[in-house]
């Protein structure tokens, strides 16, 4: 007989990994590197956060360490994807044909 907290934790686990799965599908389906970064960074932030919250519900005594991992991911994930997107643009990784506008390339064209 599982308690309500255990059940909530287990549902959070499944929900978190479901977001990870949507990120994985995005990685495969998105047409260019920038859109893949978008898909990768968003789902890999919320997914682990929910999963870690789920683990914390099932084992409250691990709460502090889990919180530490969560906060760390929350701060580093967007940073690393920004650095990566910047590097991609600087070396001129191609964008998908659907791309409608690129202000950054326009501005760099003006002031070389």
């Amino acid at each position: 007989m599982a308690s309500v907290l255990d059940l909530l934790g287990a549902i959070l686990l499944v929900g978190g990994t479901a977001f990870l799965l949507s990120g994985g599908i995005g990685l495969v389906r998105m047409p260019d590197a920038y859109n893949r970064i978008q898909a990768g960074t968003k789902s890999t932030t919320l997914g682990p956060l929910l999963t870690l919250a789920g683990v914390a519900c099932l084992r409250p005594d691990w709460g502090l360490t889990l919180l530490l991992i969560g906060v760390f991911l929350l701060f580093t994930n967007p940073l690393s994807s920004q650095v990566l997107a910047r590097a991609a643009h600087r070396v001129g990784v191609k964008q998908a044909p659907q791309t409608v506008i690129d202000r950054l390339a326009e501005d760099q064209g003006e002031q070389p």
Binding site: S22, R29, N35, Q38, K42, H89, Q98, V100, D107
Partner: peptide, 26 residues
């Protein structure tokens, strides 16, 4: 916003036509 962003991304990648209109704005 984080939850909203993930839900929207999930609907985009799961829809067969992949409705994106990417670009870099300032």
């Amino acid at each position: 916003e984080l939850v909203k962003s993930n839900l929207r991304l999930a609907t985009i990648v799961l829809s067969p036509s992949l409705p994106i209109k990417p670009g870099i704005v300032k």
